[in-house]
Design a protein around this nucleic acid. Structure first.
Lengths: 156, 156
DNA sequence: TGATATATGTAACTTTATAACATATCAACC
DNA sequence: GGTTGATATGTTATAAAGTTACATATATCA
């Protein structure tokens, strides 16, 4: 319910905390937080915006961490499948999760003017969608919720 | 709130009614419902499922109605921008609208097993998303709501 | 009928994503 | 501590999705 992304904040802390939270989660769950995976997450945390896979790949390439698409896509698959990052379907882009580790259904507010993305929380089983699913007998496992519009800054 | 798509129905009628509703809407609004646009909508109504742009293009090509990607994408842009069809972001695919002409915010229930898609109705300004938007001052103009899971048939 | 806007035809290209297979590294058991 | 099976990376090639640009045609309306 809290949206993260349109406010100023202590960015160094947010990068550090994000990385540490994921690192800790990986230790607890015996997941391999390898250099490429770590760096991809760090890049997304640093940029703090939705980035295309090839844009991330360019950064990896500069650093000698991998130069071919599968390197980026595999790291992103890992991060997304464990909830450390999300794919913004509407933008074909990826963004670091604002609540890593916590089991949640993200919803995004995407500014069409400046491309800023804020992550909010949506409960798919609630509301009209949940009701429609119940009525038809559909079992929701996952949900993509993306709102497009104008962020506070661009609306002003 | 009503989901359309997981039930059996009179399909010939649904194709005919869909085309007629769109044709009438185009007349009222002075839109050009050209042969390619009409045929693309008809293909989607006939198949009654989400189809990729290139899959639609293949059919057009067989019929001599156009052979290059822009032909399909332009027709789809027209149909989507006027609400006669929708893009399913998660599938990079398109589907005929179940309520053509009516101003609405569609929500989709997508079966991950059989790829069937049902169109329901979602009000983006309601619920948690609307609340998050209000709190941050974000102005929602459009929303993508797509639930993934199992349709009644595949769940059984 | 002429001017303007809208739609189509076509070639070339960009962006996004995956398949397939070889090599390396990890992890955990004996 | 080496062996083995699973997991991760490197690399080539290719598939799938979408756009640009520009020429031509058709519709709309004064």
């Amino acid at each position: 319910m809290d949206a993260i992304g349109f406010e100023t904040h202590d960015h160094l802390t947010c990068i550090k905390d994000g990385l540490e939270a994921v690192a800790a989660h990986c230790v607890r769950h015996r997941l391999q937080f390898t250099p490429v995976r770590r760096r991809v997450l760090e890049i997304m945390l640093q940029e703090h915006r939705a980035m295309g896979a090839y844009e991330i790949l360019d950064k990896l390439r500069e650093e000698g961490l991998g130069s071919q698409p599968p390197v980026a896509y595999r790291a992103l698959d890992f991060l997304v499948s464990h909830g450390f990052a999300h794919k913004i379907e509407r933008l074909n882009a990826f963004i670091a999760c604002a609540h890593p580790g916590q089991n949640h259904t993200p919803a995004f507010l995407i500014c069409r003017k400046c491309d800023a993305v804020a992550e909010a929380h949506a409960e798919p089983s609630c509301g009209m969608l949940g009701r429609a699913a119940d009525e038809t007998g559909f079992k929701i496992e996952q949900a993509v919720v993306e709102a497009l519009g104008l962020c506070p800054r661009c609306a002003a």
